[in-house]
């Protein structure tokens, strides 16, 4: 993929830019020649399976791991030799990493204290931020008494308090249950847009990335596999890996290689050329997701499609595949 995508706006230089960033621990290579830009006010999500180097990417930007090679620039200035605490970043961890020995208010105030802000100003800012994340008045609470969602909001308030140039989120919602996760994800999205926060967001959950990001980067074995705007990425994944990771169910092997059929490309049609037997039916958000296995042919494909009425397992249906929607995938 190109190093500079059109989304980042050629009008202004990106706020954060990674060039050829390589990071290895001994013999293991965590990141290999990564190029990435984050424009001001944009949210970029880095997704990939565990162990793909997402967290290493954040640690490298934060300066918690020294680079083996390459350079990172923030606001046009190289971060080489700039210590973690001098980078002016915000970082939100999956496990909150709240300071267990400090109260909620002292946690949020920590970054301000490091900036030597006067107490009064600090208290005011802490109040504002707790307000912002919906936890007004919880200053003196002990952090261990917080619920998972509350702890995550405190972590957000703490990261935002010193007005970081760039906010980094490491699986910020990973420890929460699904409902809360979805709710917080859209809340974060709204907040970031409102405040104009620039964020680098790392997650293994593609749904979360699609909810929150302007731009998505798929990482695999320490290398960028593909990047683009969410819709672009969803509609035209370039490889089997990306298509599978995003959750596309219809990836078929063809004589010429792999082919992706979007779920909308398959539908029931009495005159369709394909005869298939229903293997599995799941109810999903008002519709039925059906998996059917091709009959008669030697190398039978599994076809997945959405259907408005229930089909029974064992039913034989005729299917039509819209060839215009098919796309070739690299292996």
């Amino acid at each position: 993929m190109s190093e500079l995508s059109d989304w980042s706006g050629r009008l202004s230089a990106p706020l954060l830019s990674l060039r050829n960033v390589t990071l290895s621990y001994g013999d293991t290579v965590a990141l290999s020649a990564v190029n990435l830009d984050v424009g001001a006010g944009k949210v970029v999500a880095v997704i990939g399976p565990s162990g793909c180097g997402k967290s290493s990417l954040l640690r490298a930007v934060a300066g918690l791991e020294p680079l083996t090679n390459g350079r990172i620039e923030l606001d046009g200035q190289s971060l080489e030799g700039v210590a973690t605490h001098e980078r002016g970043l915000g970082l939100m961890f999956q496990d909150h990493a709240l300071f267990p020995h400090l109260s909620v208010g002292d946690n949020v105030a920590f970054g301000l204290r490091m900036q030597h802000q006067p107490t009064e100003q600090r208290q005011q800012r802490v109040g504002e931020l707790l307000d912002l994340v919906g936890l007004a008045g919880l200053q003196s609470r002990a952090v261990h008494s917080l619920s998972g969602g509350e702890a995550q909001r405190v972590a957000l308030a703490r990261a935002l308090a010193p007005s970081p140039r760039l906010l980094m989120l490491d699986e910020p919602l990973g420890s929460l249950d699904r409902v809360l996760r979805e709710q917080l994800a859209s809340e974060l999205r709204r907040l970031f847009t409102e405040l104009g926060v620039t964020a680098l967001h790392v997650t293994h959950d593609q749904a979360e990335a699609f909810t929150m990001a302007d731009h998505i980067v798929v990482l695999r074995n320490g290398q960028i596999e593909q990047q683009g705007a969410p819709a672009e990425l969803w509609h035209s994944p370039t490889s089997v890996f990306v298509a599978q990771f995003l959750g596309h169910p219809n990836i078929w092997k063809d004589t010429s290689g792999h082919v992706l059929a979007p779920i909308t490309a398959v539908r029931v049609d009495p005159n369709g050329p394909i005869e298939a037997q229903v293997e599995q039916v799941e109810f999903r958000e008002g519709r039925f997701r059906v998996t059917a296995r091709e009959l008669v042919v030697v190398e039978a494909r599994r076809l997945v499609f959405d259907h408005n009425s229930a089909l029974a397992v064992g039913d034989v249906v005729r299917l039509f595949v819209d060839k215009a929607q098919l796309a070739a995938l690299a292996d």
């Binding site: 300066g63 210590a83 605490h85 002016g88 915000g90 970082l91 990493a97 920590f110 010193p162």
Partner: peptide
């Protein structure tokens, strides 16, 4: 747990400040 130390460093604490305010307590 080392993540609070990383959190403190990102929030602007020098290595010594992170030790003093986050590790030592």
């Amino acid at each position: 747990d080392q993540s609070p130390v990383a959190a403190a460093r990102v929030l602007g604490a020098s290595p010594f400040a992170a030790f003093r305010w986050v590790t030592l307590p």
